[in-house]
Simulated assay, not measured.
Amino acid sequence: MELKPLLHPLITKPWMDTVSQIKLISFDLDETLWPSTEVLRKAEEVQLQWLEKKAPRLTLVHNIESLKEHRQLVRKVYPEIAYNLTAVRMISLSQLLKEFGYSLALAKEAINIFLEARNQITPYPDVIPVLEYLIKNYTLASITNGNAEVSQTSLKNYFQISLTPAIAGTAKPDPDMFYQILKKVRIKPYQAIHIGDHPTYDIVAAQQVGMHAIWINRNEMMWPEELPPPNSMINNLYELEQWL
């Protein structure tokens, strides 16, 4: 698939001047540092298997898909917490457990089962070698809309700061996700680079607060023509290491 040409400032003198000012590099997680489809599928299966033992009346009626549909309904009914996937899961399971006559305490246990499996990630091959290099020179942060906890994954030793919707009280593309990270490190937006796979939630959102934004395009996707371009595009983190 042919990619739309993108400006490549990383190899120009202005970009080299910019690099010398960078203090923080933040990363999205799912599809940026690891593939998430299989991880999420397995986590849902592990949780359902646990529920089959602990709440069999519920699982006689519900499967993975119908549980997902119920969570979507919860997000519509409670828009104020829709950004927090773990909170949505808690409310959804609590409602269903109550409906089928089970203790609400099972909801928290079920979520812990899910999250434990959710954090069993396998990073892309380029991730650990490049993080090993970057951590020597930069503060590294993670900013995710998901409910993976970096501190519970195999990448726990590489990130000084990790921000999730449950911690931040919001989610990307809300600029406050990025402002919170910048405030923690006490730096200006131009001193930070954000790297992510989502054109709107990662790239445009980071640029709008004044951060540099690099689109990691692992799957040869087309950049949306209606959006302003990223500062640059990479296919893997080795390219980022070379440029820096």
Rank of each mutant, 00 (worst) to 15 (best):
P189I: 02
M1E: 01
N63V: 06
Y179W: 15
D197S: 11
L3S: 03
L10V: 09
K76C: 01
L73F: 13
L73P: 01
E2C: 01
K42D: 11
M177C: 14
N217C: 00
V61L: 08
H212K: 14
V209I: 15
K53P: 00
P35A: 13
K136N: 13
Q191W: 11
R118F: 02
Q207Y: 05
E241L: 13
S92H: 07
E45D: 08
P14R: 06
I187K: 06
E109G: 10
H212V: 12
K136E: 15
E80G: 04
M1G: 08
I111W: 09
P125V: 09
A55H: 04
W243F: 13
L134H: 09
W215I: 07
I11L: 13
N157I: 03
I181K: 10
V185Y: 08
L40M: 11
T200C: 00
A141L: 07
N231P: 00
I22W: 07
L58M: 14
P175C: 11
G146L: 11
S26C: 03
P224V: 08
T32Y: 02
Q180A: 14
V185G: 12
L96K: 12
M177W: 07
M90W: 15
I187D: 00
D174E: 12
L155C: 01
V185Q: 08
S154M: 11
P199S: 04
W34V: 06
Q120D: 12
A166Y: 12
L93T: 07
Q180I: 15
Q120K: 11
L6S: 07
M222A: 11
L3F: 02
G210V: 12
D202W: 09
T12W: 04
T18A: 05
L240I: 12
E2N: 10
H212E: 05
R57A: 14
L3W: 01
V127A: 01
Y190K: 13
S162H: 14
L155M: 06
L106H: 09
M177A: 03
M233L: 05
A171R: 13
S232M: 00
I135E: 11
T164E: 09
I234F: 00
R218S: 02
L93I: 04
K183W: 05
M233S: 10
A205Q: 05
V150F: 03
